[in-house]
Every structure is written in C-alpha cells, then in structure tokens.
C-alpha cells in the first residue's frame, strides 16, 4: 500500500513539475490589457495561423492575449465553458468565433454590461459584436465558382465535397458556390453534394463514392482543407487525378504541393494570419475608444500554380 502511495505521489509531483515549467507568460504581464480569444476549433492549422496573427498583433500593440478553442468544431458546450472561464478572469475584451451564436448571446450580453468589449471573428458572435472580422465566405465561394467555371470553359459537371452542414461558414462556402454557378453558368450542372466531416479519410471515401455514382464528373469543389486533401487522395487512389479537376479551399503543405504540381487546379485561401491580427487590432482600437467598422473583411484570394509564390499570396499559405 505504501509503495502504491509513493508511486502516486511521484506521478502527481512530476505532473505538477511539468505544469510548473510551462512558460509563465500569463502571470508576469499583469499590467497589460488582457484580451481573451476563443476560436471555433484548436487543432486545425487554420486556427494556429489565426493564433499566430493574433500573437503578432498582441506584441505590436502591447496587450496580453490567450487563445483557446474546443478540440472538435462541434463542441458547443465546451466552448461555452471556455467563454465563461475566460470572462471570470476579467478580460478587457473578448474575441470569439462562436460555434453556435444562440448559446453565447446571453453570456455576451452580461459581459457587455460589465464593460467588456466584444469582437467577433470568423463565424462571429452575432449581434453582440462591436466589430466582426472574417472572410466573407459567400464571396470567397463565389470566387471559387468563377475560377472553376473559367477552367471548365463554362460547361461541365461539378461535384461538391463539403465538411459540415451545421457550421455557418461551411454552409456558406457551399451555398455561395452553388448560387454563383446556378445564376451565371447555365451549362454547368452540380450533380452531387456530399459531406465528409472534414476528416481526410472519410472525404476520400466520399469522393470515390461520388465518382462511382457520377463517372462523368469534370470537377470537384471542396470546402476546406480536410475535404480537399481527402478528395485529392481519393482521386489519386481512383487513378483519376487531372482527369477530374480539383478545386480546394484553405491551404496546407499537402495542398500546396498538389497546387504546385497542377494536380489541384487551384484553391481559395483566406487570410487567417490577417484575421487574427485584425481581430486583436480591432479589440485594441475599441479599448482605446477609437471607431471601428462593424464588418472588417479579412480577405480571400484565388491561388494556383501560377501565382502561389507571389508576395501577396505566399505568406497566406501555411503548412
């Protein structure tokens, strides 16, 4: 029994040590204004790029930020908990990309009443936000549609591999694309829309199933990185790469490689670093009593093999 207790004590102290050795940045800079950022997710590179931009801005404007997000982009309850915890630490401002706007509105109202400034980014925070920094997803998807139509010369069949039917920007990325095509390109037909949860493997299976159902598909449009890399692998496995064209969204090392080789004809990139930066910037401005626009478009670009190394694109493509 004693031996077991000893082991237990040892484990606990090692863990305590490990936690204690983490850089103690939080406690040393208490005099700076504190901005809590809570993202839609955490693990994905996109969020890490947002975080990078936010941290850059924090340095430039001399504020302290924390950045967190639930591990799955569906964990509404977890995000709410994170928000509540963050508010308990008395931040000067909160920046939030809400999974579900309704579930945080009440909390944000209370916070606002206490004088905490609210900034929305990416999916946003609904009406409580004093500023909203994000990619206009409808616009971005329309940009993708324009380019896809251009590549197909205004004629052909398209399949769509989406990544979520619940998250608003994911829905917009599909809706914006479909709207644009239906409105302006009567000779292009969208034959199938399926969803792969942004899971690489699942998206590959979805793509292959789609090709089986519609062997005459000319182009596949995908709504995020997971969907795109998944579809990319699916096409490779099916031996249809370049025979069926692929248009993606976002970026990663694998996608960049695909675009460079021409196996992915092109993709839309948002500016996550800029989004992070602009979000913190907006919050700082609000705290300083400056006026900010209620919607700040953080921009989006079409990139393909021809322009991906240009100066205005290159920094937006992350690994």
């Amino acid at each position: 029994m004693k031996k077991r207790l000893l082991v237990f004590a040892l484990v606990i102290s090692v863990m305590a040590l490990a936690i204690g050795c983490q850089p103690a940045s939080k406690d040393t800079q208490d005099d700076k204004p504190y901005i809590a950022m809570i993202a839609l997710g955490y693990g994905h590179q996109f969020w890490q790029a947002v975080r990078q931009g936010a941290e850059e801005a924090a340095k430039d404007y001399n504020v302290r930020i924390t950045f967190e997000g639930p591990e799955e982009e569906t964990m509404v309850d977890k995000q709410v908990d994170m928000l509540k915890t963050a508010l308990a630490n008395n931040p000067a401002a909160v920046a939030l990309a809400a999974i579900d706007v309704e579930s945080v509105t009440g909390i944000l109202k209370d916070a606002k009443a206490k004088g905490i400034r609210i900034v929305g980014f990416d999916s946003g925070t609904g009406e409580e936000a004093e500023a909203h920094c994000s990619t206009d997803n409808l616009q971005a998807a329309a940009l993708a549609a324009e380019n896809a139509a251009r590549i197909l010369n205004g004629k052909g069949k398209i399949g769509i591999v989406g990544h979520s039917q619940t998250v608003i920007d994911a829905v917009q990325r599909v809706d914006g694309f479909v709207e644009k095509i239906e409105k302006e390109y009567p000779d292009i037909e969208i034959v199938d829309i399926q969803y792969g949860d942004g899971d690489h493997l699942k998206s590959a299976e979805v793509t292959k199933g789609m090709l089986q159902a519609h062997p005459d598909i000319d182009l596949i449009y995908t709504s995020n990185e997971g969907a795109c890399v998944g579809a990319y692998n699916g096409l490779k496995e099916a031996g249809k790469i370049k025979e069926v064209l692929l248009v993606g969204f976002d970026s990663s090392a694998a996608m960049k490689e695909g675009v460079r080789s021409g196996e992915i004809v092109g993709a839309i990139t948002q500016d996550p670093v800029g989004m992070g930066y602009k979000t913190v910037e907006a919050a700082v401005k609000l705290l300083n009593g400056e006026k900010v626009d209620s919607f700040i478009d953080t921009g989006c670009y079409w990139y393909d093999a021809s322009n991906m190394d240009e100066d205005h694109i290159k920094p937006l493509l992350y690994d």
Binding site: Q165, D192, Q194, Y195, G196, E205, V206, K208, G209, M210, Q212, A213
Partner: peptide, 16 residues
C-alpha cells in the same frame, strides 16, 4: 459497414 456507406454514397443519399 464500408459497403453500406459506399452504397449509400453512390446512391447520393444525404450524409445525415
């Protein structure tokens, strides 16, 4: 499981 999901996809049954 895999042939079922594949079949449903081929029939363009919605994901949900």
């Amino acid at each position: 499981i895999s042939s079922l999901t594949n079949g449903l996809r081929i029939m363009s049954v919605s994901t949900e």
